[in-house]
Computed example of a mutant assay.
Amino acid sequence: MRVFSKCLTGLAACTFLALVACGQGDTPADESKVAVAAEAEEATERAEMLEAQKAAYEAALAEAEASRGAGEPALWTLQDEDTTLYIMGTVHLLRPDLKWRSDAIDTALEEADTVVFEADVTSQQAASEMMRFISSKGMFTDGRQLTSLLTEVEKAELQKALDHLGLPLGAIQPMKPWWAAVNLSVMQIQQEGFDPNSGVEKVIEAEAVAEGKSFAYLETIDEQLGRLAGMPEDEQVDFLIGSAESIEEGADVLDVLVSEWADGDVHGIGLLMANPDMIGSDEVYDALLKSRNEDWVGKIEAMLDEPGTRLIAVGAGHLAGEDSVIKLLEQEGYEVSGP
């Protein structure tokens, strides 16, 4: 993952210059010069921002690579007299040839009566809910198109990403920025050889179904995607352009994250993923991780009131960093054993 910081100072300055110019009664030619100057300033600001992001990422990467895990994906345990909760981090898409199973994970899955995922994304009901949500919250319904929200510099960044993916602009024009960002990222990951059918949840789900286990979920599709869909449009645009700017890096960053996950290096995952600087902004960080972690803690606490054994499998980023589910549980006074 890459840093997706905003550059509001430069954009605000461009807007201010344009407004002042119009207020002073410039000719169309003058207005054109101001627009060109504003675009040039925005491009310069974005180039400087990307350099700063690259330096921040390289520093985090160096520290992450210097740390080590236990050599297998991390697994935590939370229990009381009659309840055992195993908690593990997952990666939703993996290369098919990656070997990630461990004796500890196999034992947790074998002992679990119920498997708990983030959300139901495989049932027919879930498919219907997803279609309904995307139709109303992921697509424009007022006649606008995606590029109507973008500056010329942002359009250029988006077009570079689309060219890299071999995707026509028309394919994403009806999408709101957050949904376009998700589609670009997933398409890039899949083109690089990562397969959702090889993802941890898919593998665990197939085995759990075969063994007749029960399933439970920490959130609905509306809750999972609603935070992204509910971001202000400017934040959505920043999310989209940050995603577009990272496309040409290929799968290198994800390969590093998967390596850290497979090694059980929770500190490394926290550095590279579970902090606002790497995700891009406080707003996106909150929508993707922090607010969801806070919601999940109460639901995990409630599971301790029900006897039995559960395996909770959620994205690895939710279990690393200062705002992780694990840290929040510990702050509530629970003893969580693990790395």
Rank of each mutant, 00 (worst) to 15 (best):
A29K: 10
D142A: 06
N197S: 04
K176V: 06
V115D: 10
C22P: 06
A112W: 10
A104L: 12
K176G: 04
D238Q: 13
S259G: 14
A216D: 11
L272F: 00
M88W: 02
L85E: 05
T15E: 12
A66H: 02
T77P: 00
G250Y: 01
G333A: 08
Y217L: 03
S243T: 15
K99M: 14
G69Y: 10
G10P: 09
G69C: 07
E235D: 14
A38L: 01
M139G: 01
V297D: 07
A274T: 12
G226P: 04
G71C: 07
K54Q: 09
V266L: 08
S128K: 08
A171S: 14
L271R: 02
D295W: 04
F133M: 03
G138L: 03
E42Q: 00
A171F: 05
G193C: 13
T107G: 05
A52T: 05
G23T: 04
V3S: 10
A313I: 06
A29Y: 10
E223V: 07
R46G: 01
R292L: 06
R46W: 02
I300F: 07
A52K: 12
V153G: 00
T141D: 09
V284K: 00
T220R: 01
L254G: 00
A156N: 09
I221A: 07
S185Y: 15
V266G: 01
E205Y: 10
I221F: 00
L254E: 04
E219R: 14
A35L: 09
G308C: 12
R101V: 03
A59E: 15
L311G: 13
T141G: 09
D163N: 14
L228G: 02
V20S: 08
E211H: 12
V186E: 11
A156L: 02
Q145Y: 12
Q331I: 11
G170A: 14
T107N: 08
Q236M: 08
A161P: 10
Q173G: 02
D255E: 13
R101H: 05
E294I: 15
D120I: 14
A244N: 08
I189R: 08
C22W: 13
A208L: 08
G317S: 14
A104I: 11
G280H: 00
A38V: 09
E207N: 02
A287M: 03
A40H: 01
L85H: 03
Y334H: 15
K33N: 05
I326M: 07
D80W: 07
S148W: 13
G23S: 02
A70Y: 01
L50Q: 14
A320V: 08
D82L: 06
L254V: 03
R68T: 13
L328A: 14
L311E: 14
A37M: 09
S185F: 15
E129R: 05
L225H: 03
V284S: 01
T90N: 12
E111L: 13
L311S: 05
D265V: 02
I269N: 11
E294D: 12
M130D: 01
Y285Q: 06
E72H: 15
D286A: 14
A60G: 10
G23M: 07
H164T: 12
D106F: 09
S128N: 06
K213A: 02
T90Q: 08
M131Y: 00
A216C: 02
A74T: 09
L158N: 10
L218G: 06
E322T: 04
D323N: 15
I172H: 11
L240A: 11
I134Q: 06
G71V: 03
L169K: 02
L94N: 04
M175L: 15
D277L: 08
A29L: 13
